[in-house]
């Protein structure tokens, strides 16, 4: 599997990271080097092995249905760029 410019651009789009056109080839090279290296895994036989999805705790604990936080709009908004309290804002979105 080898990444080309277009794939790098598509992945960067998915990850919402701007990559300028003149960076694409260099980045594709770097990413390919890493991907070629991780492909060593293909040599490991894993037929019938269940993927490991949990490490420590074997089951999700439940929390009680009680309200423990809220009414803290100031704290929630304190670090916000360009807030219009009590709202966060972003450049206008057209749906």
């Amino acid at each position: 599997m080898s990444l080309d410019r277009d794939t790098v651009a598509r992945i960067a789009g998915l990850a919402r990271i701007r990559v300028d056109a003149d960076e694409l080839d260099g980045l594709a090279g770097e990413l390919n080097a890493i991907l070629n290296w991780v492909e060593a895994l293909n040599a490991v036989p894993t037929d019938g092995v269940e993927p490991m999805i949990a490490v420590g705790a074997t089951r999700a604990p439940f929390r009680d249905d009680v309200v423990t936080e809220g009414d803290q709009a100031d704290a929630v908004l304190k670090n916000a760029p360009d807030p219009v309290p009590p709202f966060f804002t972003v450049p206008k979105v057209i749906e």
């Binding site: 599997m1 990444l3 794939t7 790098v8 992945i11 960067a12 998915l14 990850a15 990271i17 980045l27 770097e30 990413l31 890493i34 991907l35 991780v38 895994l41 293909n42 490991v44 894993t46 092995v49 269940e50 993927p51 490991m52 999805i53």
Partner: peptide
């Protein structure tokens, strides 16, 4: 770089080959 690689290995068509494979080897 790491976010891009991580995004790629989870993306459609590659999830099984990379991420699921890695979780099996992890087991």
């Amino acid at each position: 770089r790491r976010i891009l690689i991580g995004t790629y290995v989870l993306s459609a068509g590659y999830y099984d080959a990379y991420y699921k494979k890695a979780q099996r080897v992890r087991a």
